[in-house]
Nucleic acid binder design. Structure first.
Lengths: 160, 160
DNA sequence: TATTGTTATACTCTATAACTATA
DNA sequence: TATAGTTATAGAGTATAACAATA
């Protein structure tokens, strides 16, 4: 009745790890790289990156949304959001219509070309995620979501 | 007997997510950014980045290790490993002693200064991880490790 | 003064292509 | 031919500093 424990060491058995494999950040980082690098390749024909798709996704679901709102949602800085938005506008996937109520703010709208790209990208993402999580049970998958969310949302705010 | 479900929407309730929060890659990515960006700040006084510490850690545990071995362990390309190694050598944390058996290969050794830095970095990392996972039960923490490892190790190889 | 968007710049991590030296 | 290391370059994602326009 031995239960196999998968370890990182199985990749390179000759290396001593000295506890490095008990660093959670390492596992999150390498798993993230796994997801991102594979997805980037699969999205390449659509001329969008994973993060650009996420932005496109939210603009589609929230027509007229402001960059500041996207910045708050992703917890990234406004110039960082702007970089994605700029590239999406260059590619004709988004347009910026200045707000009439507050002329500082712009409202972002998805174009028809953006909608087509988003629809295709969503299919790619679903297939990609299904492939990478095929090894997990339904319960494991939902636990992974729940625990990651718990860590993410309970993180002390940045300035502390 | 309602059990609270934490959602990403709680951050920006005014935004429609349209299923974006069911994309696992998003949660892994944002949680990764959370870990990395906070840790970078805390490691800054030591003049090392998170990945540099990981390299230093393995060199310390495996005196004379080759860059190729590190490349296999982290599943990153040799030039990527070399970049970290080069910076660590510049800072005097590592030295490269060419192998006598195979003069193509170098063996990496940690310096005394590197050992001091590594010891301090390990303390920073442990404290940082404890802080970010304080919200998790022991069981949740071990499940998170186990499930991430399962995904990582069962991933189809790159060239497929 | 505060907020929104923008530009410029830089850093971390990653990759590919092409090279040298050695096996 | 194959392997170890290196160099050059690029791309994705992030940040800070400083600015203009508007509120």
């Amino acid at each position: 009745m031995t239960s196999e424990v998968l370890t990182r060491q199985s990749v390179t058995p000759e290396l001593a790890l000295d506890g490095l494999d008990s660093v959670l950040g390492l596992h999150i980082g390498t798993t993230n790289t796994l997801f991102v690098s594979r997805l980037e390749r699969q999205l390449e024909p659509l001329s969008v990156t994973p993060k650009q798709v996420a932005i496109l996704w939210l603009v589609h679901a929230n027509p007229g949304v402001k960059q500041t709102d996207l910045s708050r949602f992703f917890k990234i800085e406004r110039p960082t959001v702007h970089q994605f938005v700029r590239q999406l506008m260059r590619n004709g996937y988004l347009v910026n219509e200045p707000s009439k109520l507050d002329r500082r703010a712009g409202g972002l709208w998805i174009t028809e070309s953006g909608q087509i790209t988003l629809a295709e990208a969503r299919r790619v993402i679903v297939a990609h995620e299904d492939e990478l999580t095929a090894c997990l049970t339904v319960r494991e998958k939902s636990e992974l979501f729940r625990i990651l969310m718990k860590v993410y949302l309970s993180a002390p705010s940045k300035e502390v």
